[in-house]
Design a protein around this nucleic acid. Sequence first.
DNA 1: CGTCCACGTCTAC
DNA 2: TAGACCTGGACGG
Length: 408
Amino acid sequence: MPEGPELHLASLFVNRMCEGVVFSGPVKKSEVSKSPDVSFSCEAYCITATSRGKEVKLTLTPIKSDDAKRRARPGQADQPMDIVFRFGMSGYFRFTTEDELPKHAHLRFYTKEKPRRVLSFVDPRRFGSWQPNGTWQPDRGPCIMFEYKSFRENVLSHLPDRAFDRPICEVLLNQKYFNGVGNYLRAEILYRLNIPPFVPARDVLEGLPSDDLLVSGKPLKNEITDTKTPVRTKKKGVKQETSDLLRLCHTVPLEVVKLGGKGYDPEKADYSAFQAWLQCYYVDGMNSIRDHNGRTMWFKGDPGPMAPKNSKSPKAKKRLKKEDDHDYTAKKKVAKGRSVATRKTPALKEEKVTKTPKKEKKAGPKEAVSKRGKAGKIQEINTPRRGTRSNSRRRKSSPAKSAAGSQT
DNA sequence: CGTCCACGTCTAC
DNA sequence: TAGACCTGGACGG
């Protein structure tokens, strides 16, 4: 769940659930967490949240009472404390009763009332982290959703940076410039403009105006919202004044915030809405290959000139999946089924690269014990394959629907 | 039961 | 440019 939209929804969730709620006592950390202890304890305090890109900041504010000011006891906070969170791959907040504490609740804030309730930072994989007395990470750029103007200027004023030598799909994950974009957003954003993912980033960014009028108000013509003109765009040399890449880095995530899944609350999250929203990521029929950092890039059509020449699309076999988790809005993927080509790559699959001299490296001997990092490689270039009835299975909840078709 | 995969950083060779 | 860091769900056998 955690890309910019989910982090923002998490902050809205905290503000909504904790409004008017009084917390008390120490902040508790789980035994297994390696993040810092939060030495904050107070008889009465409230909690508010804000987000910026892929970070959420909680502010614990002591509630002053005549009693408290009178004798400031040691160990009792009287000053506010900020805690900045990063969610890793699986972080989220929950607000439950004490006896319904979720598994993997690594940082907990208890309410003052009797049957206590608990605001928890839950993170099964523990890739997330927090910093007491923290500030927004200095190397991260402006938020793509709520600091659009400076985000845009930051990118366009640094195009000479070698970082932009890389393929656009990889640069989109660089948080120094695209704070809030994650793996599903980069796929959805590039798909909307039909930009091949492995094209040099600078090539697609240079020439864009540093000032987007959208900021000042009226959205000009937006491809999707335009009711009259069909989506064409491609074809015809009509350059058309549709949204450019940087604007989509702002508007696409805001669409997810708008879906908001019922304002959050993992319990009743409605994934089908998010799934129906996805047009490319994990959608059956789309192509996927691993980028230079081993992350799966989903796209349609041509991968572009800088596509990794050897690596391929991840494991042909298991695609499917389900949709997993909770998430504030919703998340996950899997769209409707359709097996595209049907051809499933017969042999191949498991074996490794037949030749490929250089690399063999480990593996050779005993093989890699447990973890095996990268997996097999297989060569062969992109192009689908995996299809196989993807969704065919998808048991579990969600059957359905998916809704109304349409999409797109 | 074992393998593969996951919405993300970090840091070490 | 590779691992490391983790848990758990979907699948395959």
